[in-house]
Design a binder for these strands. Structure first.
Lengths: 208, 208, 208, 208
DNA sequence: TCGTAAGCGAGACGGTACGTCGAGTCTTGCT
DNA sequence: AGCAAGACTCGACGTACCGTCTCGCTTACGA
């Protein structure tokens, strides 16, 4: 489902003349990129280092990606997605998924990579075009679970699913990025609160 | 109240021998840093550029800050804080404050600076020690408003104020950093939802 | 005939992989070095300036020479040599050659470069290994003329040719470096005196 | 007898107001300069290093000498002079003096300092004015010996004493600076040859 | 005796060059 | 064509000194 139409994909291009691009090199580059992200972090990642680790010439990298950012984004896109969980209870489904997400981020330097990319995104529209679809794709499982819950009648039909996803993910992400304490046990109460908020009646009527 | 005990502060040190550090240079450097953050963004910010813009030698910068990150963080700390609003209604208070926050971030490249710093923070514990207190300080006005609201009985006394702040700020921040649509009009409904969630009774009982 | 086995030579190395070093850059660097030596002198010569003048990156210079001194020495080695003169009369041959040498040195800042290198030589054995062969090579024509003169029977066979060369060159060099008056017309009398000294019989017997 | 009228002299100036310059500092600076010349050589000598070694502020140095060169020259001028020797025999007098000179230079990095200064001299007329008198003064003892020898009738009255001194000193200096072998035993034969050359009759008549 | 003028050690100042590193491009010979 | 290798230009890095400029202090002289 990830976009295959950019220049970095080795497959299904025009029936090119000459030697075809090496898929092995392609994979080695992405693999090396992920390893180095884990080892040295985004801002210390160098294309030179990736080339060396992958046993590849720098030109072979630049032939596929125009700079290190799209490379990192593509590598990021290869990481495991959230897996949809269906226990019949929306709260525990979402909680389980978000705990997995939290686990993935805290156990790797992705915690640092994602905000770094976000930082660049703000100055670089082309980057947004690469990065944003991946971000959106990554939340699809969450949205699917919410939609299913709406279909079951657990949640009101009127809710904005995108907004709901942000309500769930936002506080966790924020805590992760800015160093507040966040642990798996905190996820379920946060899910409950978010859902409670989503179910609230016209708020001007009630809580205030 | 922000920490003044680090090496970059020109004040209240021992009555040192030698020519004292120039406060004018200090200010010029921070000013130039902010300007360049706005103009070129964090990752294109160079110490050389800051020195040139500030009319200062590079050594004068390195004498105060060991690298560009602490410099950027200190400059970031100088930006205007959220101003506490008190209209008597917690929803509109919070909404107003968060709209101001949103406005500040969307109108400047701080949108990019903050996640960039967050990205570095993850690899650099010393950086955390500089950055985290600033982040914490910046949310104090929000927490103060929430506390006041608890005192007034608008919100239950049992709520975790820090968590509440994240519930309010997290979704907005996330949207900002990852490119989802976010506009001032969306703030108030989000505040209402967050507060509704905070007021929810034992959620396992109700919403699911 | 000058040594080509050091790292700076672009030629006759192993059939290395990768892009070969640019001979054009090599020449441009040496050319720029000579020009700047003439214009600003040795101690004001900067690698940065050479790079700029040669239209070359600094790394391209440092890839070939570890510092400015070996570079200057190699550039110095490219300057025109003394040309052997053969008029049949050893005095006028030597006088002509030394006048040429004098002319070369007084008309360029080599007058300053040579003692500067000599000054560094004293602290730096590796430098000696680069510099001394060039100095030795440069006096070969002089020695050849002296040897020819010995062969002709003009000079006694027992004389030490190296010492003879120093007797001829030393006084001129010294005057040049330390600012005493020295003009082309003074060369021939000095040659005559030196040769007269070389022909002297056991000196303890006569002049004292 | 050396000039005392330059700015570096702490004595006999106008009846100045204010605190007089410290002679102790003056001496400490020159002493530190000589030590560092011996330890690190001319081109690695820094004013900063001299100030530190002398326990003196940089300004105290710059108040006396406009740059490191005049400082080095003045320090050089403090070194022991050739001492006139009078054994009654001009050859052994000169040989002894030159052996002493050789000893002084080979046992210290002055071997490097002198050509370094000479190298700068070529680009810097003001430097010449400081340096040349010292060079001239240093050869006076040699010239005095030669003059005495002329008075005694050992040498012809017509000889140019300055030239004679160069004939004696030049070859030794040259060998020292350019790395040829030179040892104390070689001095006496060189003196003999030089004197023999000086006594030679019209050379075009004899040696050729 | 006291002020004032200059010197003092210390160290920050704006600069310039250092030698290194990485970016992104180009050029070998080989596949 | 693509490939690994490695040179290329460019420009920033962080350091070291340059020569100048405050600091807060002596230290002498002349009023």
């Amino acid at each position: 489902m990830t976009s295959n139409s950019n220049q970095s994909s080795p497959a299904n291009q025009a029936p090119t003349a000459g030697r075809p691009r090496s898929e092995a090199a392609h994979r080695a580059i992405l693999q090396a990129t992920l390893e180095l992200l884990v080892e040295v972090g985004f801002s210390s990642l160098t294309v030179e280092g990736v080339a060396q680790r992958a046993g590849v010439g720098k030109a072979t990298i630049y032939r596929r990606w125009p700079s290190k950012l799209p490379l990192v984004i593509e590598a990021y896109g290869l990481l495991p997605q959230l897996e949809e969980v269906d226990t019949g209870n929306v709260v525990s489904d979402l909680a389980q998924m978000l705990r997995d997400y939290l686990e993935l981020l805290t156990s790797t330097p992705l915690r640092g990579v994602i905000p770094s990319i976000a930082g660049e995104r703000a100055h670089n529209p082309e980057l947004s075009e690469l990065f944003d679809p991946i971000v959106r794709a990554r939340r699809q499982p969450l949205i699917a679970v919410l939609r299913r819950s709406v279909d079951r009648g657990e949640l009101p039909a009127a809710i904005d699913l995108e907004l709901a996803a942000d309500l769930l993910v936002g506080p966790i992400t924020t805590r992760l990025f800015f160093g507040s304490k966040i642990s798996p046990e905190m996820v379920e109460p946060m899910v409950e609160m978010a859902l409670w908020g989503l179910m609230g009646e016209a708020p001007s009527g009630a809580p205030v």
